[in-house]
């Protein structure tokens, strides 16, 4: 019983804070390039920082700007890596043709 109350209180505080963050993020939502979102969704979402970026979101921006290599992400699975590379190739190819026209 001694442990139940602290756990409950801590859980409650965490819940309230989480709710607040959610509200703030809704209210202060920033429209971003949808390509970043799709790339980020293909990363492992661990936000571990092993790639040298501040998190998966930053890494996605780096990938889009061709500043980062997919290899920099350490925990990514082989299949996911291949899928992501294919996706990036396609993106950049589409970009090229559109700028050539």
């Amino acid at each position: 019983m001694d442990i139940l109350l602290p756990a409950l209180v801590l859980g409650a505080i965490g819940f309230v804070l989480g709710l607040l963050i959610n509200l703030v993020s809704k209210y202060f939502h920033v429209e971003e390039d949808s390509r970043i979102e799709t790339i980020e969704a293909m990363l492992p979402k661990y936000n571990c920082g092993a790639c040298g970026y501040a998190g998966c979101h930053d890494m996605a921006i780096g990938l889009l700007n061709k500043k980062a290599m997919v290899n920099q992400c350490k925990p990514i699975k082989q299949e996911a890596k291949e899928a992501l590379m294919a996706h990036l190739d396609e993106l950049f190819k589409a970009e090229k043709t559109s700028t050539n026209n």
Binding site: F28, H29, V30
Partner: peptide
């Protein structure tokens, strides 16, 4: 929260 607000 400060981060989100600043970003906007």
């Amino acid at each position: 929260m400060v981060e989100l607000i600043l970003k906007k």
